[in-house]
């Protein structure tokens, strides 16, 4: 029956671009600041495993839970025994293994995948600059660490207000603790992200950051103790500053706020306070410079 059918239509033009409905975006754009902020928020969520697999949430949230324990126990002690538990300024120092592990396990996440899969040029083809990128990653890690260290302090403080202990509320100690937590977060984040950025392998990054923590505390403790045994307390007071936790304690909580130290021994006084602050700021600056240098190199590939 095919003979009775009409002949096929003449062939179409050799080439044609079909309009299949794609549209340009002509609306307003939010710009560089928003892009950097979006990157920071995305990284912060990622540090806590949000938007990642269920397994990625386990470690950050378990560590966060452990970090909360002393606050809960202290509130219970205040309520039941009318006794104060852990002090605000010593909280992060007593629990230092937890922020350290958190830093080691999560800071490689913020930088390693981007390096490994070489997506940096994709970020930098946006309005985002290298400084924005590094700043966003640092801000995310700092915020994560601050949440980890400041939330228990705040919960403890609210608990103290609610329980209504005899005696004055330790507001100034709480504020010193918060300032210490902030300084500690900035310092640890800068160091951790800088160290982690030197390898695209996550496992090696974790090992390198924890090695930094264990080495600094190990050297600080070993040297400090031996010096104290030798009777040289002035030198020992400097040795404690090798540990980032005692450094922040000495610089901010003791130095600026005049609280009691939480280290194993005394910290240097007078000029020593200024020196501790200088060391702390210097370490942060050094880390940022190292990060920028590292990413200049990575972005050029």
């Amino acid at each position: 029956m095919s003979e009775s059918l009409p002949a096929p239509p003449p062939p179409a033009p050799a080439g044609v671009i079909h309009d299949i409905g794609y549209r340009h975006y002509d609306g307003p754009r939010l710009g560089r600041g928003h892009a950097a902020a979006a990157l920071a928020v995305h990284s912060l969520r990622g540090v806590f495993g949000l938007g990642r697999t269920a397994r990625a949430k386990i470690i950050p949230f378990v560590l966060f839970g452990i970090m909360m324990l002393p606050a809960v126990v202290s509130i219970a002690m205040m309520a039941i025994l009318q006794e104060r538990g852990v002090r605000y300024t010593e909280y992060a120092i007593v629990m230092q293994a937890i922020p350290a592990i958190f830093l080691a396990s999560q800071s490689p996440y913020t930088v390693a995948p981007d390096l490994r899969f070489r997506v940096l040029p994709l970020y930098l083809s946006r309005p985002v600059t290298l400084w924005d990128y590094v700043g966003a990653k640092l801000a995310a890690m700092t915020a994560a660490l601050f949440l980890l260290t400041a939330v228990p302090l705040t919960v403890l403080f609210v608990g103290e207000l609610v329980v209504d202990m005899p005696g004055a509320v330790r507001t100034s100690e709480y504020l010193a603790g918060m300032a210490g937590a902030l300084a500690l977060s900035v310092l640890l984040a800068a160091l951790g992200v800088a160290i982690a950025s030197f390898t695209p392998r996550r496992g090696l990054g974790v090992a390198a950051v924890i090695a930094f923590y264990l080495l600094s505390t190990g050297v600080s403790t070993a040297v400090g103790r031996v010096l104290e045994q030798a009777g040289d307390f002035a030198a020992a007071s400097w040795a404690w500053l090798i540990s980032p936790f005692f450094l922040v304690d000495a610089a901010v909580q003791v130095g600026v706020f005049g609280m009691d130290g939480s280290g194993p021994g005394g910290y240097p006084e007078g000029v020593g306070v200024a020196a501790a602050i200088m060391i702390m700021v210097g370490l942060i600056a050094l880390s940022v410079v190292a990060l920028i240098a590292r990413y200049r190199k990575a972005a050029s590939r």
Partner: peptide, 29 residues
């Protein structure tokens, strides 16, 4: 160098640092 090289300091260094810090880290890496 600082003259704290007694037996006690040595044991302390090896116990806390060599066995306590270096060994597990080398093991992990």
């Amino acid at each position: 160098v600082i003259g704290a090289d007694g037996e006690r300091a040595t044991v302390e260094l090896l116990r806390t640092f060599a066995i306590g810090v270096m060994l597990p880290l080398l093991g992990v890496i």
